[in-house]
Amino acid sequence: MTGYLNIILRLTIWFLLTADLSWANIVIGVGVTILLPRGVTNVGLLKDWLRTLGEVLVAIPQAYKEAFEIMLYPHREETVVLERVKPRRTPSLIFLDIFLITFTPKTIVQRYHNQGWYEVHYIQRRETP
């Protein structure tokens, strides 16, 4: 599954970069994509993948919403919170999770513990009640 995603990602970058759908360009792109080395990755669940990719799309407007929130109301408090990783996560899904958390402006993942915890750095308007 991730192997296919890898190839699709590379092909997307190639076609977006060259913006050329001629026959020769397609052959070059597919050839380079297959020839480039790729690491061995675990197979994740298709359902988890689709849901996480959907969350990425949702995250973009949410990120803008949070940006407006912290612009309108100053957030001055900083806290560090430990969050549990959802079960059955492959490394690439964990990467996507970290990406999602860090993408929104109020939260940044500081560190990932191997026992299944994220260390998330929050900014807040005031002390936690």
């Binding site: 402006p105 500081q110 750095h121």
Partner: peptide
Amino acid sequence: LYKLHGLSVADT
């Protein structure tokens, strides 16, 4: 880290 939040707004 606080500045990093601001840069996340600005640069991303």
